[in-house]
C-alpha cells in the first residue's frame, strides 16, 4: 500500500499538469491589396450592359500604395489622377478617390471571379440619376 500511494500521487500530478489551455492565434483578416493596373471588363448604365457597345479596352487605372493614375480617360468617378483610400483596409465597403479640390466615394464590392479578385464600383459621372457600375479586373 505504501508503495502504491506515491505512484498514485505521481499519476494524479501528471494528469493535473498534462493539460493546459491551448492558445489559438486569432486569424487576422488580411489588408485588401489593389495595387497594380486594372481594366474594365463589364460596364452598365442604369442596368443596361454597355460592355460590348462602347470601347472600354484602353482605359486603365493604376493603383499604388496611396495614389492612382488613369490612362485613356472615360466617364469615371473622377477625371484626374489623385489619391485613393479604403474606408476600412481590412473590410472595405467604400473606395474613395481624392483629387486636389474634391473627394468622390464609391460603394465597393470585391468578389472573387474565376479565381481572381475583381473590383466593382458604382458612380455617376454626369447626372446623379444615371448610375454606372464598372467591374474592374487586374491586368496581368
Amino acid at each position: 500500500m505504501k508503495k502504491i500511494f506515491p505512484l498514485q500521487c505521481l499519476l494524479l500530478m501528471t494528469l493535473l499538469f498534462a493539460c493546459k489551455p491551448e492558445r489559438l492565434a486569432v486569424p487576422s483578416e488580411p489588408l485588401k491589396d489593389i495595387k497594380g493596373s486594372w481594366q474594365v471588363i463589364k460596364a452598365t448604365r442604369n442596368g443596361t450592359d454597355l460592355t460590348a457597345r462602347f470601347d472600354f479596352s484602353k482605359f486603365r487605372i493604376h493603383f499604388s500604395d496611396s495614389t492612382y493614375t488613369i490612362d485613356s480617360l472615360l466617364p469615371f468617378i473622377v477625371s484626374k489622377n489623385g489619391k485613393w483610400a479604403f474606408d476600412d483596409p481590412q473590410y472595405p465597403f467604400y473606395l474613395s478617390f481624392t483629387i486636389p479640390d474634391s473627394t468622390a466615394r464609391s460603394p465597393l464590392l470585391y468578389p472573387v471571379t474565376g479565381g481572381q479578385r475583381n473590383i466593382i464600383i458604382t458612380f455617376s459621372p454626369g447626372c446623379t440619376a444615371n448610375s454606372y457600375q464598372y467591374t474592374l479586373k487586374r491586368v496581368n
Binding site: R45, N46, L50, R53, F54, P75, S79, P125, G126, C127, A129, N130, Y132
Partner: peptide
C-alpha cells in the same frame, strides 16, 4: 437615352 444626361455621361 438617357433622356436626361450631362456631357460626361455615355449617351445612346
Amino acid at each position: 437615352d438617357p433622356r436626361t444626361s450631362l456631357d460626361n455621361d455615355i449617351v445612346t
